[in-house]
Design a protein around this nucleic acid. Sequence first.
DNA 1: GTATACTTTAATCAAGATTTACATTTAAAC
DNA 2: GTTTAAATGTAAATCTTGATTAAAGTATAC
Lengths: 226, 226
Amino acid sequence: MSKLLLIDDDVELANMLKEFLTQEGFTVTTAHDGLTGEQYVLAGKFDLVILDVMMPGQDGMQTLRNIRQHSDIPVLMLTAKDDNEGRIEGLEDGADDYVQKPCLPRELVARIRAILRRQTADMPKGNDIVVGQLVVSSERRKVFWADKPIVFTSTEFSLIEILAKHAGTIVSKEDLSIKALGRPLVKYDRSIDVHLSSIRQKISDASGGVNVIQTIYRVGYQLVRE
Amino acid sequence: MSKLLLIDDDVELANMLKEFLTQEGFTVTTAHDGLTGEQYVLAGKFDLVILDVMMPGQDGMQTLRNIRQHSDIPVLMLTAKDDNEGRIEGLEDGADDYVQKPCLPRELVARIRAILRRQTADMPKGNDIVVGQLVVSSERRKVFWADKPIVFTSTEFSLIEILAKHAGTIVSKEDLSIKALGRPLVKYDRSIDVHLSSIRQKISDASGGVNVIQTIYRVGYQLVRE
DNA sequence: GTATACTTTAATCAAGATTTACATTTAAAC
DNA sequence: GTTTAAATGTAAATCTTGATTAAAGTATAC
């Protein structure tokens, strides 16, 4: 069954949830602060993380960002009532869903199952993302155009990987910066533009002039399905 | 059950703890100074070390560093109240957790179990880590490429072991330094680079030109499954 | 002590990321 | 339509990080 990591400073609540989730057939590990949680994510092979937003020390948002530096694991956030700002912030930083605290365990389970289902549906074979002729292998960090390898640098790969994951939808430049470069976009920062330029060049060379990355002025970029 | 090594100069306290931990199902060996403790670590097959920071002669920090030269065994440190500096220093030097003295035996047991659980999550099957043609035997501290042994130094082994444990995911250079060398990465520190260079050379020689260690620029390294 | 194996530092080169600079495009205001 | 300010594309310069080799420092065994 699926392995969950529960990060919450409230030990009592965590144990209660753990008990309930275990009964539902999940394997649950708990961590009671953000830093420990992060280490667990890197070490253990979990399928999903449940992360409390409000924690002393390193809070949930920061933990989420740190986790996203290294891992694409689905994250479900536990948030205080009506914290819509945090909700939006978290979704931008890569959270997969939200549940309000205090929560009905049953709802929590339903959302966990929904995310896990979505996850496995998203990625059919291995970890390869296929968009038309373009194949992005997250596992090997390699990219192909119709089986022909394209050599990308590390940052270029991160960018095309993000675009490929969200193929068909628009990703903001801000998002690209945070997720691929690990820092927010500042004024006059042209890094993303330059990297995208190189990526387009390389894909164009490999494909014979195809441009799969579309610019949406003042909104972002999207990888188009041919 | 798990075998613990308790290193503490306070004979009376040590015996008390030993008794309690034994009742909890652990097998406990005691040492009353750092040097003796170190020898025990190297000699015996322990699962975890409980180490007092304040000891006459060689103190706990030094003992920890010495242990980390040769072993990745989990270490839980016993520290004086509010010694946050030492706490940070110790974590940087590779301690797995902290407990304040005087401590509730029950909390100690909980933390021991937490560390051991985390540890076993790291190593799911047997003790040999197999990644493609590469076999890393933690027990014997030996490495093979398709049954052909490769001779690694102690540090090289620690590095490839860590990478193998996290095969398929990225490990930061900072993490490698802390876990393999037992110290944080400082500016202009090229040690990890040099060791990785040697490791690559040896694996390449043994395999006939294969490079299994991938660099992710400014992020870290990962062992790829071929 | 001396020899040996190992680790770290130093130095150099190569690869990658970011900034700069300028051309071009876009959308809105007039 | 024309103008304008902001946003984007891209080439080149600059800065940062990684790879590799050799040399210097450390520890260990004999």
